[in-house]
Amino acid sequence: MDLKMPLILSYTPKVKVKTLALGVFSMTKISKEIKLRALTEYFAGRGGIRVIAAKHHISFRLFEMLVAAYRTHGSDVLLNPPQVTPEFRIEVAHWAISNNASYTQVAAKFGYVGMRQIQVWKEIYRNQGPNGLLSISKGHCLYQKDGNPE
């Protein structure tokens, strides 16, 4: 029996990344150019979500959200993302909770792909109501040292 092994290319892709240190873990930020290239490849039919996400070192979940948002909002998702205001946070959290929406559905509706931020906004909205989201300012730490929202 002759089993064919998949062809594995050995190369180092050119990936423009920025590593951000956030407490005890680090996060790699993928450039807009890389994300746009990956989206272009996906919509040109050059592979599935998982394959293209892996090729460009983008998490599957983030790429799935990007695809959904790009479908609805086009390149504005990357080039002109929504301005995050207290009102925007309230609208996103309220809609997500009211519709029991997935992060991908939120991305498609609002063109916003900040999964962790959406999670925290929903938690604050549930615990403190919309007023809890009014006091958050850009750069404000949303987490206590124990990892729970403030």
Rank of each mutant, 00 (worst) to 15 (best):
E33K: 11
L36E: 13
L36G: 03
L36Q: 07
A38M: 02
T40E: 08
Y42D: 03
Y42H: 11
Y42Q: 02
F43T: 02
F43G: 02
R46I: 00
R46A: 00
G48T: 05
I49F: 01
I49A: 06
I49Q: 03
I49W: 00
V51G: 03
V51R: 03
A53V: 00
A53E: 01
A54W: 01
K55M: 01
K55T: 00
H56D: 00
H56L: 00
H57D: 04
I58L: 01
S59I: 00
F60E: 12
F60V: 08
R61H: 07
R61N: 09
R61S: 12
L62I: 07
L62V: 09
E64N: 14
E64Q: 15
M65S: 14
M65F: 08
M65H: 14
A68Q: 13
Y70P: 07
R71E: 15
H73N: 11
G74V: 06
S75W: 06
D76K: 15
L78R: 05
L79F: 04
P81Y: 08
P82S: 08
Q83K: 14
Q83S: 14
V84H: 15
V84I: 15
T85K: 10
T85I: 05
T85W: 10
P86Y: 03
P86N: 04
E87S: 12
E87G: 09
E87H: 08
F88E: 13
I90S: 07
I90P: 09
V92D: 10
V92C: 05
V92F: 02
A93D: 13
H94M: 07
W95P: 14
A96L: 02
S98C: 07
N99Y: 05
A101W: 04
A101R: 05
A101G: 11
S102R: 12
S102L: 06
S102G: 09
Y103S: 13
Y103V: 01
A108S: 12
K109F: 07
K109T: 08
G111T: 05
G111V: 03
V113A: 13
V113D: 10
V113I: 15
V113P: 10
G114V: 04
G114L: 08
M115P: 09
Q117D: 13
I118K: 10
Q119T: 06
Q119N: 11
Q119S: 11
V120T: 15
V120I: 15
V120C: 11
V120G: 09
V120R: 11
K122Y: 00
K122A: 02
E123C: 04
I124R: 11
R126E: 11
N127F: 02
G129T: 05
P130S: 14
N131M: 08
L133I: 07
L134W: 04
L134T: 10
L134D: 06
S135G: 15
I136K: 06
I136C: 06
S137C: 02
K138L: 05
G139M: 04
G139D: 09
H140L: 03
